[in-house]
Computed example of a mutant assay.
Amino acid sequence: MPVTEAKVRIDKWLWAARFFKTRNLATEAVSGGKVHLNDGRVKPSHGLKPGDRLRIRKGELEFRIEVTALSERRGSASEAETLYREEPDSIAAREARRDERRLQHNAAPQPHGRPDKKARREWRRLTGK
């Protein structure tokens, strides 16, 4: 449901594009400096227009996108994907980070069932509990 207006609030757009689950989370991210518009910090009420470039940080992930359409309403995920275009190097960096996390998870030793008495004592000795 693209909007024909010239500008839409950045927090509304981030929510409509499904980068954040609620508008409040989008507002907090913009206010907290996690979202940059054209390499500068903005307020949540700042107007967004097609062609603007956004850098969005969510935890370890970073999205670098270009706004292609505006919307004030949250639609389906397929509709949300039409509102922006992500840069290829941003996609590659996120996939590389995902693969790195997957390798780290597989390399970590996994516990085998419930700890026995000796393992519990060792854990208490190490943690001080």
Rank of each mutant, 00 (worst) to 15 (best):
P2Q: 11
N24A: 14
V35I: 09
R53P: 00
G51A: 10
E79G: 10
P50G: 07
A6W: 01
T82E: 15
R9M: 06
P109Q: 01
A17D: 04
R64G: 10
W123S: 15
K7E: 14
R85A: 14
I91K: 12
S45T: 09
R41N: 11
R98P: 00
A26N: 05
T82H: 09
L48A: 02
A6K: 13
E81I: 10
G47D: 02
V42Y: 01
L83R: 02
E86Q: 06
F19D: 03
A107V: 02
G33R: 10
P2S: 13
P109K: 05
L25K: 11
E72L: 07
R18N: 06
A16P: 01
I56S: 05
E66T: 14
A93S: 13
M1V: 06
D52W: 08
K118V: 08
S78N: 15
T68A: 11
E5D: 15
K34M: 08
K117G: 04
S31R: 13
A107D: 03
S71R: 06
R23H: 12
R121H: 11
R121E: 08
A77I: 10
A119T: 15
A80P: 09
F20A: 03
E81A: 15
P88N: 11
E28S: 12
P111L: 14
G40N: 14
K49E: 13
R98G: 00
T27A: 03
L126Q: 04
T22K: 00
V35Q: 03
I65W: 03
A108D: 03
L37E: 08
T82I: 04
E100Q: 11
A96K: 12
H112Q: 15
E95C: 05
A119C: 03
T127V: 05
Q104T: 08
R97G: 00
G75E: 04
G113K: 14
K118Y: 00
V3R: 07
H112V: 15
S76N: 12
K58N: 01
T82G: 12
W15M: 05
K117Q: 01
A29I: 03
A80M: 10
R98T: 01
E95L: 15
H46P: 01
V8Q: 06
F19A: 04
R18H: 04
H36L: 14
V67H: 03
Q110K: 15
Q110C: 00
G51V: 08
S71Y: 06
R98A: 05
T82S: 13
R101E: 12
P44N: 06
R125M: 06
A69L: 06
E66H: 10
D39L: 10
F19G: 04
W15Y: 10
T127Q: 08
